[in-house]
Design a binder for these strands. Sequence first.
DNA 1: TTGCAAATGTGATAAACCCTCACATTTGCA
DNA 2: TGCAAATGTGAGGGTTTATCACATTTGCAA
Lengths: 209, 209
Amino acid sequence: MEGTPANEQIASPRRAPSQQRSRERVERMLAAASALIAEQGSDAMRMGEVAERAGVSIGSLYQFFPDKRAIVWALAERYTVESQACISAALQDVTDAEGLGQAFSELVDIYYRLFLAEPVMRDIWSGTQADKALRRLELADSRANAEFLGAVLKRLRPGVDPVSLETTAFLVWQMGEAAMRLAISVGRQEGDRLVAAYKRMALRELLAE
Amino acid sequence: MEGTPANEQIASPRRAPSQQRSRERVERMLAAASALIAEQGSDAMRMGEVAERAGVSIGSLYQFFPDKRAIVWALAERYTVESQACISAALQDVTDAEGLGQAFSELVDIYYRLFLAEPVMRDIWSGTQADKALRRLELADSRANAEFLGAVLKRLRPGVDPVSLETTAFLVWQMGEAAMRLAISVGRQEGDRLVAAYKRMALRELLAE
DNA sequence: TTGCAAATGTGATAAACCCTCACATTTGCA
DNA sequence: TGCAAATGTGAGGGTTTATCACATTTGCAA
């Protein structure tokens, strides 16, 4: 970021659009940003270009987004909300080991396909590490998702130390995200093998004892 | 990066220092960069500041480093070379399962301590995902390290499909790096638990069957 | 020693970018 | 109808990366 002293604080909030007109324009801004990220990555995305493509002035852009990262953040949050619902639904009704194996396996496949198909998501979660605010969002997201998994584990293995199970769930989940990132950054064939290997490894851990 | 059309190519090479004088100056530049990264992170590192702290002009900096990323890259490469020797040594003489368990466990501990102690390394490998050149370096590094691990596995389990073992080794290694990054970005206590959990999980996979 | 090409050193400056701000326009509503 | 709040605009400030024409130093052959 330029024009600002290196500041890792989360960006100060801006007014939310309250009128129909502005809500539509914000939608256009996000759509433009999304398209540009898909084309060239969020790093190469230029604020001026986003504004131009959305058909608004640069000033309007900054009316609703305090800075560049906020746009990426907004897009990332949408994916987050969407996927959390999906994950919660998949794991909610698991009651036995077999069910867990089934649900987890499907979840991994869905995530993998999502990563392969959505260049925006891929780019955002890759750039994640460099941006403190995004990293926090991802960690919070991952924690939330891991909790669903942890809850299942606690149900399945009531005798085991809950903290240990939570740690396992969190780790397995984060490993999964790392495996996805790895898989999509190598060739498709090797990627498939890596995802399959991760699935085996994770299930072995989840169903252990 | 500003002042350049978004270009993901690897930076064009510059003349390497051939005289004693310039070699010392390059050393000073890297030292200055290292100190600044430790203080504020590589993103906040300013080229002007590096030059000033190294006691050289901005022009001299660009004489030996084509761009900002090249400096980070040069530092990263040093860590890479250093750690590869260490890893190779640790895994070279492993001949049985027990030896693997021992060596792997120690290696993880060493890496974890290194990450905790070296803010520069931490910063560089965190920012890795955003920079294509760095990501390639990390992947190549990880592949090389995984090969040592893969070689051990092939020795230990001669009957198993070698490709499968290589995939396992690569995955386990990458999971390890991800686990480290995760561990250092949460509190110390949870970090320790996560590293321990990773160790268990990885060993279970490595020594399976 | 001298002369000279190659290596090295310098900093003003170009170029690109993010973001602000003073001012204009539109909207919702009393 | 009138007016305050919301929204819209884009030139320009400020910061940063990177270049380049020119100055200085070094190594070495004559």
